[in-house]
Nucleic acid binder design. Structure first.
Lengths: 237, 237, 237, 237
DNA sequence: GATGAATGAGTTTTCATTCAT
DNA sequence: GATGAATGAAAACTCATTCAT
């Protein structure tokens, strides 16, 4: 087993562990879940600071005090929201990555997963992007560590691609990861803020092309098939 | 004068107008400026919601009421912080762009300007990235309009590059802009949060390469000089 | 059943409904009542605007926040003060009116009730006269509607008196009502402001005479033409 | 000269002194007058406590500090508003009373003066009725003393009427005065609050009749015993 | 006299959290 | 575990008044 594959497998194992912690379907009879679901809705809608615990309690149909049975304080409740999702997302990505060969193909799939999951879980995404990410505490939280596993997976795939010759050897994997995640995020913000619908499929294409071939004049050098998949590179004669 | 140059000039004219509004000397005797300076420091340090107006007043050495002589409310004060900077930054970029030819060279310079300005104005950057950008009101503010001019400048340069054949014709300029800004932002976040020092020069290189040539195996296709500038494209024999 | 009696009964029915809403025992253990009682005392003493919510809280021996559990804001608390009293007063008047025959006798009783209740509830009276009545919002409040029922009762009695021939036919019932209420109020103001004790019994007499026979020399006969203009005075034989 | 006439003259002399202090036409160039005029407008419109000194300054087109050159504080400014008016009103009444004979005719004229002046000076009336009268300080103020002179004039006229046999001998002049002023005030309040227009002429009639002959059936004869108790009613043949 | 920027004490109101039941 | 009434410590904002110019 080649070295890089082993490493990738390690990352995947960790991600799997996260995925394993997933409570797949929220039981609405479970108070804890009801509270988290309400928190997600309202935090996403009004922002952390402008949401009151009373509102969440009302929405969850529990007493205010009950919230403090399950969560030490308001911020803990905020951090509880992504927990389930991160496990679920890890699962989702690992599932979709199955059977895909090639670093670029995997990255393309990850871009699709990312945008697709965002689109289908706007409240979660809003909370991650607009509330949690701006909190310094986040970067010491377990949530961040779990997200780090995902980020490491991307880096592993890039490293694997470099080893396989599919990706240029002098590329800095961390920068590429930042490029992938940063681009997705930057593209996403307007529709997070304005609740716009976006055409995922076109976006995956555009983002993938941009990331894979950068600004290089494509028609001169790169062969791209109809699906936008890089199939080869030619001198445009 | 070619069409695209004219358009670029239009954008530059708008940016210049913003730059013209700059109050260059932040005179510490000027109360308004003292208040803004204090706000910048504390908002950056503790976040908007966890900063009290009293704290800012103390730091600015004015009475609490004085703040309300100059700003209608706390949020107005928040938005006053970037105002000066945006004008200053516009100036900075336009100055550095002088005499540079070629879309890629201009973009590289913009990446440098961006990272460099961020590094030298961390508090401003933190406030923009972590506080203002997540506020829906921002997207209707004058601050946003000013930043839009900058964003438009990037798009103009990309469009110009496409016209000149320096950039592939099928690239979506908006995505590229998102890629540039998103990558820079994503790269920046750790040192915004952890106050880490970073080697700008290496970063400009890495980011530029990532953006310009994407993941394509360079040694096979692209000729890049030592500065990372794309000088030609060959079939790697 | 004669028509006017029926109308009077209607008014009485409405007044009774108000009276039915009365919370008769102002249990001092009940926080809401304690707050209202404190508000009554302090609003009466210092006026609405010069009373602070903190003062009321202190006096009621509750936390400031507790007040906002029961009342939406300071003004709501002000309006809560007369609510109980109006119901109580309605009860009081209806009770005392029982068995009395004749419009003038009823009006005399009402004058007595009014002055007597005022004397026994000075704080309430001060708040009604000096605080609430000057607020335009009052005239759209439920408090006003309840008071209107009382005012209507007076008009009904006057109308009834006219029908029965006990009261002159060309009298304007609304003016008479204003005369009754206005006189009482004007007489009351000095002892509201200066906390003077007054001899209710003499006052009821004096006010009743003034209202019933005006300035006419008693035992004389007034000649009044159809327009109500005084045309002459005869010595009654 | 009869005794009562002498007393009346004394009262008139005092009132005249007040009237003499009148500054008859406000010079808009005079800052003091401009400030008072602005205060009158805004106090009437929004109430004392909800008016800010800054607003008055703006309306008067003077600096905030200038107000404190002329008035010790906000409340002093409030009390300055009626000062001019009371002198003017005293003048107005004394003028209109000239040549009128008979207590009832004089009272009727005073009722007319009162209502008429109120109608033509709504802002002043609002301030007197809704702001000043509820303030305990008022009853120790010079404003109150001046108004007292007016009130005394009414009592003098009533006393004179009793002496002349035009008014019943057992009437309490203070009560009658309260009846006159109270009725007018009670009638006025709705149009003060709602800015309604009212038909003064009809009102003077109605109020005069109500006050002069009370509830007695006109063209009937009231039998009243020495205590003023109504003992019977005769149809005047 | 006139100004208006500066003040800071004071007010209402909010809300996370607690705790007796 | 569950409740929700009670808390009281803030916090934003206001405004009468002052005073240096």
């Amino acid at each position: 087993m080649p070295d890089n594959t082993k490493k990738l497998n390690d990352v995947q194992k960790n991600l799997s562990r996260v995925a394993g912690g997933l409570k797949p379907n929220r039981d609405p009879a479970d108070k804890r879940e009801r509270i988290i679901a309400a928190a997600e809705r309202i935090f996403a809608q009004k922002g952390y600071f402008e949401t009151t615990v009373a509102e969440i309690a009302r929405d969850a149909q529990v007493a205010e005090g009950t919230i403090y049975e399950y969560f030490a304080n308001k911020k803990d409740l905020l951090y509880a929201v992504p927990e389930n999702y991160l496990a679920d997302y890890a699962n989702f990505v690992l599932d979709h990555l199955q059977g895909i060969k090639g670093a670029l193909n995997k990255l393309r799939k990850i871009i699709w997963c990312h945008l697709s999951y965002f689109r289908n879980h706007k409240d979660f995404t809003k909370i991650m992007t607009l509330e949690i990410r701006i909190d310094p505490d986040y970067y010491r939280s377990k949530t961040y560590e779990n997200l780090k596993l995902y980020s490491d997976l991307i880096i592993q795939i890039i490293t694997e691609g470099i080893k396989d010759g599919e990706i240029g050897p002098h590329v800095n994997p961390h920068i590429i990861r930042d490029m992938i995640l940063g681009t997705i995020e930057h593209v996403s913000i307007p529709w997070l803020v304005f609740d716009r619908e976006i055409p995922i499929d076109n976006l995956v294409e555009d983002v993938s092309i941009a990331i894979f071939i950068g600004l290089a004049p494509r028609e001169k050098v790169l062969k791209v098939n109809l699906n936008g998949l890089l199939t080869g590179i030619d001198v445009k004669e």
